[in-house]
Deep mutational scan, measured.
Amino acid sequence: MIVFVRFNSSHGFPVEVDSDTSIFQLKEVVAKRQGVPADQLRVIFAGKELRNDWTVQNCDLDQQSIVHIVQRPWRKGQEMNATGGDDPRNAAGGCEREPQSLTRVDLSSSVLPGDSVGLAVILHTDSRKDSPPAGSPAGRSIYNSFYVYCKGPCQRVQPGKLRVQCSTCRQATLTLTQGPSCWDDVLIPNRMSGECQSPHCPGTSAEFFFKCGAHPTSDKETSVALHLIATNSRNITCITCTDVRSPVLVFQCNSRHVICLDCFHLYCVTRLNDRQFVHDPQLGYSLPCVAGCPNSLIKELHHFRILGEEQYNRYQQYGAEECVLQMGGVLCPRPGCGAGLLPEPDQRKVTCEGGNGLGCGFAFCRECKEAYHEGECSAVFEASGTTTQAYRVDERAAEQARWEAASKETIKKTTKPCPRCHVPVEKNGGCMHMKCPQPQCRLEWCWNCGCEWNRVCMGDHWFDV
């Protein structure tokens, strides 16, 4: 396979590697080409510095992935760790964990309700045991953590790749202090920090972006993250068709209702045909949960890209028209025109101005929308079919299609509260000796007794199943 190397943020060049090629071997190839010592090179990928003893497969490097290699003399205490030698983080029983690669970060837990604080980093599902597709590297999971809308060759929703760059020099040479644990960490600028490894760059702020994971991409090709779309790892039924499908869209209502993408497309087109989208002054033209839940309008309007190009163009047109109407304007009634106009409040005669090729020149009556006339309008008909009709959803289907309910059931079956801080902690095999993952707590306690870890627990039921 081919990976592209950008040395000291210059133009990239291809390097041929195998899945079992080590990072140090990659350094040696680059060092020979650039005429520099291999031990002064640092390989940066997806916000993480890659260790010498890791392989291309370990690092989730795919065909035509772009890695950054910078030349920086080692500072005291760094060289041993980078070589894969006596790194205290690798000691058996050590409590410190390697910062998780962005290629394996899962933010789907952050669609849980606000009262489930902490689960994004504490609760991990076991539903990723799908067998890898044919042709994928051994052991590589097909679980997708992110979804994007690819405006490039795909023109559809695709699995996405999370990447990070330095907000100062805009190069992907920043190593994160810690990985993101929720969508806010990724979507809110300057929320996460790190250290830029580019020479002479003092940058410390992280800037995240997404790429389409279905095809090789260049540095400049980015895609918009659709953070309401998630892999259906909890096997929730769709609120409309009641099938279990994946991926799904999880509405931001209190129940976190789930809808499959085909039904979401149908829901949007139906509402669009009836012009029953909601115009929100802050958000724009949007839709609420299909069950009509309060405070559930979709905030990231790129989710409506699921409509496809033709329907999305209609959505944008109707949204612009609705904006004009909300501002007190009118639409030209001549067939084939429909231009938005903003006449004076007491102006009865409205002319669709033909300047700049935008208007048709038609003069019409503001009251009856017919060709302009003197005197009273002959008839004014009330528009028919403008009443909002509820999208029919079966109550039982709505009850079963809740992301929140599956989460709470998982928590109930696989977790116990920490005796000190009461945060839910998952036990997935292993011994009875637990350690609270909350940095402010870190209590060592017994899963069996529910009390602080002691010699009695150690001698009596340390390794009970």
Rank of each mutant, 00 (worst) to 15 (best):
I2Q: 13
F4Y: 12
R6I: 03
S10A: 06
S10M: 11
S10N: 13
H11L: 04
P14R: 05
V15T: 02
V17C: 07
V17Y: 03
V17D: 00
V17L: 09
Q25G: 07
L26K: 01
L26R: 00
K27G: 01
V30C: 06
K32V: 13
Q34T: 13
P37M: 07
A38V: 13
D39E: 13
Q40R: 06
Q40I: 05
R42Y: 04
R42Q: 09
R42H: 09
F45A: 13
A46P: 00
K48F: 02
L50Y: 01
R51W: 04
R51T: 04
D53Y: 04
W54H: 07
T55A: 05
V56S: 01
N58Q: 14
L61D: 01
D62G: 12
I66M: 06
V67Q: 01
V67H: 02
I69G: 00
V70C: 04
Q71S: 07
Q71A: 06
Q71G: 04
R72A: 13
R72G: 11
P73V: 08
R75K: 13
R75T: 13
K76T: 14
K76M: 15
G77Y: 12
Q78K: 10
N81R: 11
G85N: 12
G85Y: 13
D86V: 11
P88A: 09
R89K: 13
R89I: 13
R89G: 14
N90G: 14
A91M: 10
A92S: 13
A92V: 11
G93H: 13
C95Q: 14
E96T: 10
E96L: 11
R97I: 13
R97G: 14
E98P: 11
P99Y: 09
P99S: 14
L102A: 12
T103P: 13
T103S: 11
T103N: 13
T103Q: 14
V105F: 11
L107V: 12
S108L: 07
S109Q: 13
S109I: 02
S109F: 02
S110M: 08
S110H: 09
V111Q: 13
L112W: 09
V117Q: 15
V117H: 15
G118M: 04
L119F: 07
H124I: 04
H124P: 15
P132G: 12
P132T: 11
P132I: 10
P133L: 11
P133I: 10
S136F: 12
P137E: 13
R140S: 13
S141D: 09
S141V: 09
S141A: 08
I142G: 12
I142F: 14
Y143Q: 10
N144E: 06
Y147W: 13
Y147P: 01
Y147H: 07
V157M: 12
P159T: 09
G160E: 00
K161W: 06
L162A: 04
L162K: 01
L162S: 02
R163D: 15
R163W: 12
V164T: 07
C166R: 00
S167R: 12
T168W: 05
T168P: 02
C169D: 00
A172T: 12
T173V: 06
L174E: 02
T175E: 13
T175S: 14
P180A: 03
P180V: 03
P180E: 01
W183A: 01
D184Y: 04
D185N: 02
D185V: 01
D185E: 06
L187I: 08
I188E: 10
P189E: 07
N190Q: 09
R191Y: 05
S193M: 09
S193G: 08
S193H: 13
G194V: 05
S198K: 09
S198H: 08
S198E: 11
H200Y: 08
H200G: 15
P202C: 08
T204A: 08
S205W: 09
S205C: 08
S205E: 11
E207V: 06
F209K: 14
F210Y: 04
G213Y: 06
A214C: 07
A214Q: 09
H215Q: 02
H215T: 00
P216C: 09
P216G: 10
P216H: 11
P216M: 07
T217C: 12
S218L: 09
D219L: 07
D219S: 09
D219H: 09
T222G: 08
V224L: 10
A225M: 03
L226N: 00
L226R: 01
L228A: 05
I229E: 00
N235Y: 06
C238G: 01
I239A: 08
T240E: 06
T242W: 11
D243I: 08
S246Q: 05
S246A: 03
F251W: 07
F251M: 04
Q252V: 04
Q252I: 03
C253Y: 00
N254M: 10
N254G: 10
V258F: 00
C260T: 01
L261G: 02
L261R: 01
L261V: 08
D262M: 04
D262W: 04
C263R: 00
H265R: 04
L266M: 12
Y267K: 01
Y267M: 05
C268F: 06
V269A: 04
V269W: 03
L272V: 02
N273A: 04
D274N: 05
D274C: 04
D274W: 03
F277P: 02
F277R: 00
H279F: 13
H279K: 13
D280S: 10
D280K: 09
D280M: 11
Q282A: 13
Q282F: 09
L283E: 08
Y285G: 01
S286V: 02
S286W: 01
S286M: 01
L287Q: 00
P288K: 06
A291F: 09
G292C: 05
G292H: 06
G292W: 03
C293R: 01
P294W: 04
P294D: 13
N295W: 04
I298F: 01
E300Y: 06
E300W: 04
H302N: 15
H303Q: 02
H303I: 09
F304Y: 07
R305V: 07
I306M: 08
L307T: 06
G308D: 14
E309Q: 13
E309A: 12
E310F: 11
E310T: 08
Y312V: 04
Y312P: 02
N313F: 15
N313L: 13
R314T: 03
R314L: 03
Y315M: 06
Y315P: 00
G319E: 12
G319V: 05
A320T: 12
A320P: 09
A320E: 14
E321N: 09
V324E: 04
L325Y: 04
L325F: 04
Q326H: 09
M327I: 08
G328E: 05
G328R: 05
G329L: 03
P333Q: 03
R334D: 04
R334T: 13
G336K: 07
G338D: 05
G338I: 04
A339E: 10
A339V: 14
D346Y: 08
Q347M: 12
K349C: 05
E353T: 08
N356A: 12
G357D: 11
L358A: 15
G359D: 08
G359Q: 09
G359S: 10
C360E: 03
G361K: 05
F362G: 05
A363Q: 14
F364N: 03
R366S: 09
E367V: 11
K369H: 08
Y372V: 08
H373N: 02
E374M: 06
E376D: 14
E376G: 10
C377M: 02
F381E: 06
E382W: 09
E382I: 14
S384E: 06
G385Y: 07
T388Q: 12
Y391T: 06
V393P: 08
A397T: 10
A397R: 07
A397N: 13
E399V: 10
Q400W: 12
Q400A: 14
Q400L: 13
A401W: 04
R402F: 04
R402S: 12
W403Q: 02
W403D: 03
W403T: 03
A405I: 14
A406D: 15
S407R: 11
K408F: 08
K408S: 10
I411N: 14
T414S: 12
T414F: 10
K416I: 06
P417L: 08
P417S: 11
P417V: 15
C418E: 01
R420N: 15
H422T: 13
V423G: 15
P424Y: 07
P424R: 07
E426K: 08
E426P: 11
K427N: 15
N428W: 09
M432V: 04
H433T: 05
H433N: 06
H433D: 04
H433P: 00
H433F: 05
K435E: 06
C436G: 01
E444F: 05
W445Q: 02
W447V: 04
G450Y: 03
E452R: 15
E452N: 15
W453K: 01
N454W: 01
C457R: 00
C457D: 00
D460K: 06
V465I: 15
V465W: 15
